[in-house]
Design a protein around this nucleic acid. Sequence first.
DNA 1: CCTTGTGTTCTCCG
DNA 2: CCGGAGAACACAAG
Length: 286
Amino acid sequence: MPELPEVETIRTDLNKKLKGETIQSVFIVLSRQVRGSTANFKSFLRGKVVDKFNRRGKLIYISFENSDKFLLIHLKMTGQLIYCKGDNLIAGGHSDNNKPSCELDKHTRVVFEFKDGASLKFNDQRTFGYLEIVDKNKLDMILSKFGPEPLKKEFSLEYFKKLLQARSAPIKAVLLNQENIAGIGNIYADESLFMAGILPWRPALSLTDSEIKKLHKAIKDVLRLSIKSRGTTFNNYRDADGNRGDFIKKLKVFGKNNEPCPQCGRPIEKNKTAGRGTHYCLHCQK
DNA sequence: CCTTGTGTTCTCCG
DNA sequence: CCGGAGAACACAAG
C-alpha cells in the first residue's frame, strides 16, 4: 500500500538513478496496465531523456527533456518500481525482439530499458496500477483535483479547520479523500488519528479546535517520520532497490489488532470505518 | 470471504 | 428537480 511516504521514497531514489538517462525501449508484459495504445506508448518513450521524477499525492509523473508530455505511474495497492543495473541481463534482450533485457519477476508487467544498461521494472501483483502518457492539459486537469500536499505550506491549519467544519463524514473518511489532502491512505490515517487521540469515526465537524490542531500536527509528523524510515512495508511495498521500509517498526496501531496499546497497554481494536479496516485504542482515543 | 486506492454510481437531504 | 455530500459498489488476485 504505497502512500505518500512510500511513493516519495521511490520518487527521490529514482530521480537520483535515472535523471538525465535515455530510454532505449519499453517491454510490455501486460498491456492492460498501459492506458491507450501500447504502440504509441512505446514509440513515444523511445529515445526520451528523463527530466525528473515528480510526485503529487500517491501519483508519480515523469517529465522528459524537450517534451510537453508526461508519463503517469500509479502504483495503487501492490505496484512496485524496481531498478536494476548490470546484473541479470539477458543476452540479446530487447523489446524489439520481444525479449526483455533483464530477468523478470513473477509480477513484472512493464520494463523500461535504458541506454546505460539499466532497467526499471513495473511490478504489480493485483494489476490495479496503471501507466499512461498524457499531455500538459490532461496532467494539469488530474493534478488540479488533488487537495494540498500535507507537507507543504498550502496545508495550513486554517485550511484544515475549514475543511472539517462543515463535514458530517467520519474524520477518517475526510483524511482518505485525495481531494481534501493528497497522499494519506489507510496506514497513515489510522496512525495520525492515534497520535492525535481521536477516534476515526468521529464526525469531522465534532472535532474541537485543539483536536484539529493536534491532528494537523500528527499528520505532518507521522508522514515526515515515515519518510525518514523510507516508508512502511506492511506486505508488498518495496523501494526502488527492492528493500523494505522500516517504518513498520514504528507503527502504533495499524495491523496491531489485539496487541497491547503502546501508550496504555489495553488491546488495540479493529473495526470497519469509512469502508476500510481501522485500528484504534478505545482508551487513548476519544 | 477478506484485503485497499480510486473511479463510478447510487441515495439521501435540503 | 438540482447539487452536493456521503455511502456503496466495482475492480483484481491471492
